[in-house]
């Protein structure tokens, strides 16, 4: 397998696996478990897209649920108010169109928020994005054609296993390719040291805006998937706690580690479901979800501050099992 098309082969394998898995899953998994699986996929898209912003470029964004809301509302409103429900190929095509529309609207919002706020350093962005998320929620609550605080209901259920995980596969392809390329190195350099990155000609503001816009796009797409699975979206679904939940996934997984972040997204989405079954003195443990998140974060900070898979380097890991071949130090050409 040549290096050049390796990423395409992985993507192809991923997509084939998604399609291949979908049939046995649809046939054997009950709808309750399927809901968990789809929710895990949507969480993974949200976490991996925030990872582009928080993990790769080191910009602390607390408004990811806001972008998800914009995508969810754009896509769902288009389907319910403009297109109406459809079937067969028309349905799949329309779904693609509304998902893209949701993603693009969220990306434009990301651009509008990102250009002014990403020039500022550190905490400002956290505050601006936090405010943005809340403003979006309040605006949605007050738009009557979009249902106000009751939201949009009766959204046809177009989201499937294939759509969710197919989009996730594309996002992973984009993240991983970006990471190994000019842009990815620019993101990481910006994260590591902005002054040094600028000193070698990297326009750090541009890189931050690009990461932010791509992240917002996929959050918007995830919102569209969410709306078309739940049939109902309300402004409340996209509150501050949702943003925090996504941030926790990124931190828990290890900032900048795509696979770690996906793992954390799966664990944290499954956790409440598992806890729901545990009953303690008549109280379901899932009511303590936020407490458990906080506890998990504290434990992580103490025992593994780099995140579950942060700093995990497959090559280095494999190298540990090889013979200790000490390489000779080469002499400088000029001395």
């Amino acid at each position: 397998m040549s290096k050049k098309n390796r990423s395409y082969i992985y993507l192809l394998v991923g997509l084939v696996a998604v399609v291949g898995l979908s049939f046995p899953l649809e046939a054997s998994v009950n709808s309750y478990d399927m809901r968990i699986i789809i929710n895990i996929g949507i969480s993974m898209i949200l976490a991996a897209s925030l990872n582009l912003i928080n993990g790769f470029t080191g910009q602390f964004s607390l408004g990811h649920a806001g972008f998800m809301a914009i995508g969810a509302y754009t896509a769902s409103a288009l389907t319910t108010l403009v297109f109406g429900s459809a079937e067969g190929v028309t349905q799949e095509l329309l779904f693609l169109v509304v998902l893209l529309a949701g993603g693009i609207t969220a990306a434009i919002a990301g651009l509008l928020i990102g250009i002014p706020s990403l020039r500022l350093k550190g905490d400002y962005l956290a505050i601006v994005t936090l405010g943005f998320g809340e403003i979006i929620r309040v605006i949605l609550q007050n738009i009557e054609p979009l249902g106000g605080s009751l939201g949009i209901s009766g959204i046809p259920r177009y989201t499937t296993f294939i759509w969710t995980f197919g989009i996730l596969a594309v996002l992973i392809f984009i993240s991983e390719n970006l990471m190994r390329s000019t842009y990815g190195r620019g993101f990481l350099a910006t994260r590591d040291d902005e002054i040094a990155a600028e000193s070698v000609g990297v326009n750090t503001t541009k890189y931050k805006v690009i990461a932010f816009v791509i992240g917002a796009f996929f959050a918007g797409v995830a919102g569209g998937l969410y709306g078309h699975y739940n049939s109902l979206i309300r402004p409340l679904d996209f509150g501050f706690l949702k943003s925090v939940e996504i941030v926790v996934m990124v931190i828990l997984g290890g900032m900048g580690s795509t696979w770690g972040v996906l793992l954390a997204a799966a664990l944290l989405t499954y956790l409440p479901e598992a806890l729901r079954k545990i009953d303690l003195f008549g109280v379901s443990l899932s009511d303590f979800r936020m407490t458990i998140y906080s506890l998990a974060l504290i434990l992580l900070m103490i025992f593994r501050p780099q995140g579950l898979l942060g700093n995990f380097n497959p090559k280095e890991f494999a190298g540990r099992f090889k013979k200790n071949g000490q390489s000779k130090k080469s002499k400088p050409a000029v001395s």
Binding site: T182, R185, G186, L188, A189, R191, D192, D193, I195, A196, A197, S199, V200, G201, V202, G256, N311
Partner: peptide, 21 residues
């Protein structure tokens, strides 16, 4: 010294070529 600590030596230098790329 202000290198990019989490990047390899190669990638540190590679960032210097970003603008020319």
């Amino acid at each position: 010294i202000r290198l990019f600590p989490s990047l390899s030596v190669f990638d540190n230098v590679r960032v210097g070529f970003n603008n020319a790329s």
